[in-house]
């Protein structure tokens, strides 16, 4: 029962941290953690289908995309 509370706390703090941090790469990594923990939350809500999809697409592909764009955007290193 209180596993869900722990996961919820992790998610909320991760979300806040992602929004607040300055460094982009750190934000992306923490976002990956948040989406993984949301996939666990889906499991706790008895929704395995959604959990797998969220894990595969929500955290897998999206984080990959973010890192890809981060690499492309960071190339010139003059982020104003």
């Amino acid at each position: 029962m209180f596993l869900s509370v722990i996961i919820a706390v992790i998610m909320i703090f991760g979300a806040m941290w992602t929004i607040v941090t300055e460094d982009l790469f750190k934000a992306i990594v923490i976002f990956a953690i948040v989406s993984l923990s949301s996939s666990i939350m889906f499991l706790l809500m008895q929704a395995p289908d959604v959990a797998i999809t969220e894990a595969a697409i929500g955290s897998g592909i999206t984080t990959g995309l973010f890192i890809f764009t981060y690499k492309k955007v960071e190339e010139e290193k003059d982020e104003r």
Binding site: A15, T18, I19, L24, A27, I28, F31, V34, S35, T62, F66, T69, Y70, V73
Partner: peptide, 9 residues
Amino acid sequence: LKIIIALNI
């Protein structure tokens, strides 16, 4: 990028 991350959240 931050905005898009927030959108995902």
